[in-house]
Nucleic acid binder design. Structure first.
Length: 388
DNA sequence: TCTGGGGTCCTAGGACCC
DNA sequence: TCTGGGGTCCTAGGACCC
């Protein structure tokens, strides 16, 4: 039996969630933004009514107001969108034994063995769309094809509120006329390189041999493009359900001049990262300080610990070293971020044989985490006091 | 109109060891 | 004493995606 992969992508997800909840927003140019009142807010999600005015993800609120003065701007409620996303996934699980969640608003279903239950794959797809619309009030687009990447490319062509199937055997005919940017993984830089070579469509990529692509784009990326342009999946290295990094960042409403004002912000971000580490039962070995200066130049400064940890204090002890490096560039600061990486599942939290001190620390931190959840951050000093 | 926040994966140079 | 080569780790940066 030939494999059939179904890809679901929710249309204008955040905006649609808000429209489903507030009927008065239906049919209106609704724009979900990061910050409503700051000129540094940008669009997270725009309803299709808003997209008619050229509003798309990433553009600043000022430009939104200029392009569409009557647009409705609301701040994003990301925890809500995560909850709705989980409900969507639960509903999708009725259609296939395994649902691979690719992001907050998209998923893949291997429907190879399920099509007969619905009569045809088209009826399955339309039923799925119908249920999302009627039960959750959310429009979505569905693509079905023989590989994951093709199902995703099918969705791109069918948006919004559409359905496209690529029948087995018609893959190359589907791909040939599409623009190179239709390949997920080909962005503006790669597009530019293709254009400089006189290549605009996927069909034209086929004229290049694997060796030529490897020479232009490097061994790995060149191989990927070779496979993707033929509709073939490339095995993913990591598992989707285990995070590789945890990060928090903040863009200030006004640039900061003095590092005394910035450091507490960095500590807060770090606390949020380690809190999530502990919640996930993980620890990290590497910390990265990210700084975007007033001139929009972004620098990162990192340090690897000898042992992975989930304790704030272990990372805080190296923060001064990283901050000193960041200070060397004499510019005002518009963004700071903290990234913890080199993650692994924590042994300390899961082992029955923890040392009593570690165990004590765990309990204290769980208490601190609880208080943080209730009252916000900056309870870190409590943990210090009990540890020492 | 000045440009968010959360991720994934890959590259490249230098240090260091054998 | 001088030399090469391979392997691994560390650090910084970049392309891309939602």
């Amino acid at each position: 039996m030939e494999t059939r992969i179904l890809h679901v992508d929710m249309d204008a997800f955040f905006a649609s969630v808000e429209q489903a909840e507030h009927a008065e927003f239906l049919g209106k140019p609704l724009v979900v933004v990061t910050k409503v009142d700051s000129p540094r807010g940008v669009v997270s999600s725009a309803s299709y009514e808003a997209r008619k005015y050229g509003i798309s993800a990433g553009i600043p609120v000022g430009e939104v107001r200029r392009k569409c003065p009557h647009a409705i701007l609301i701040p994003g409620d990301y925890e809500k969108y995560i909850r709705v996303s989980e409900q969507v996934v639960k509903r999708l699980q009725h259609f296939a034994p395994e649902v691979i969640v690719a992001s907050i608003d998209e998923a893949f279903l291997d429907i190879t063995g399920c099509i007969h239950l619905w009569g045809s794959e088209e009826r399955l797809a339309l039923q799925l769309k119908d249920i999302m619309r009627k039960e959750m009030g959310l429009p979505c687009t569905v693509g079905i094809a023989s590989t994951y990447i093709l199902s995703k490319m099918a969705v791109k062509q069918a948006k919004p509120d559409g359905y496209v199937s690529i029948p087995s055997g018609r893959e190359l005919a589907f791909l040939s006329p599409l623009h190179v940017r239709s390949i997920p993984g080909v962005g503006p830089k790669t597009e530019q390189i293709f254009h400089s070579l006189g290549i605009y469509t996927i069909g034209q990529i086929w004229q290049l041999s694997l060796e030529e692509l490897e020479k232009i784009f490097g061994l790995i990326y060149g191989f990927h493009i070779y496979q993707w342009s033929r509709g073939h999946d490339v095995e993913r290295w990591g598992r989707l359900d285990i995070p590789r990094v945890i990060s928090r960042e903040i863009t200030f409403n006004n640039d900061f001049i003095y590092w005394e004002d910035i450091v507490p912000q960095i500590v807060k971000l770090l606390e949020a990262c380690t809190y999530e580490l502990r919640q996930k039962g993980m620890e990290a070995r590497r910390i990265v300080l990210k700084v975007r200066y007033a001139d929009f130049v972004t620098k990162t400064f990192s340090y690897s610990l000898t042992q992975p940890t989930f304790l704030d204090k272990d990372f805080i002890s190296v923060l001064p070293f990283l901050i000193e490096k960041a200070k060397a560039r004499k510019y005002q600061v518009r963004l700071v971020g903290v990234i913890v990486s080199e993650l692994r599942v924590s042994i300390k939290q899961n082992s029955l044989f923890c040392f009593s001190k570690e165990e004590k620390m765990c309990r204290v931190l769980k208490c601190v985490d609880f208080l943080r959840e209730r009252y916000g951050f900056s309870f870190i000093h409590w943990a210090f006091a009990i540890d020492t």
